[in-house]
């Protein structure tokens, strides 16, 4: 059959698109239909069933901060996924407590996926509640003041704009908070 495609453009188009669409549809349209966790928000209030918590919709302010995160291309250096690797759970952990592995149901409200491809700075999947606003303000002003050796650029136009700072910090504080993973609700604001 494929022999015909050598000299017949119509046959060619049918075969080239046909082969492409088998894998194309099975890997894009089928998976969210088969795995419900891609579209169902995480919620669990029963400690006997594992980690408790609830994924909440973004507030207006958090959404504004989310847009700033996208605008500045933060995801080009910061991933947001605790992978199924022991080291990831320790690195994203805090004060000796390991962070839970990221699951699809924590991201169903994310209108721009921020999983990222390159980890130049640390992963931010569980950064919510680790640092308070004052820390973030100083860090955006000059990251090297707080983390010597950091190569993150300074963002003075955010640090010195109270509205944008509040919005962006509000967004960052949501990261990883769907799961109540820290003992005694020890979260900074």
């Amino acid at each position: 059959m494929l022999g015909k495609t050598d000299s017949n453009a119509t046959w060619f188009i049918v075969a080239a698109l046909g082969l492409f669409f088998i894998g194309g549809l099975l890997t894009t349209v089928a998976p969210p239909l088969l795995d419900k966790s891609w579209n169902t928000a995480f919620v669990n209030h029963d400690p006997s069933k594992g980690m408790t918590g609830e994924l909440k919709p973004y507030t207006e302010q958090e959404n504004r901060g989310y847009a700033i995160y996208i605008r500045e291309g933060c995801k080009y250096c910061h991933t947001q996924q605790v992978r199924t690797l022991e080291a990831d759970t320790v690195r994203s952990g805090w004060k000796g407590v390991k962070a839970p592995v990221s699951t699809p149901d924590e991201f169903v409200n994310d209108w721009r996926q921020t999983f990222g491809t390159k980890r130049t700075g640390p992963d931010l999947a569980r950064v919510g509640g680790k640092y308070n606003k004052q820390w973030h303000k100083a860090h955006f002003n000059n990251p090297r003041d707080l983390v010597p050796g950091s190569i993150m650029p300074p963002f003075p136009w955010i640090a010195n704009n109270p509205q944008e700072l509040d919005d962006l910090v509000a967004y960052l504080q949501t990261r990883g908070r769907a799961k109540d993973w820290r003992p005694d609700g020890d979260y900074e604001k």
């Binding site: 075969a15 492409f20 894998g23 099975l26 890997t27 894009t28 992978r83 699809p104 924590e106 999983f115």
Partner: peptide, 19 residues
């Protein structure tokens, strides 16, 4: 190439939060 390539996208999220 026409058949195989399109199946591989998810290999960018190995160990990540995807089925």
């Amino acid at each position: 190439l026409a058949f195989v390539y399109v199946w591989t996208g998810a290999h960018h999220m190995i160990h990540g939060p995807i089925s």
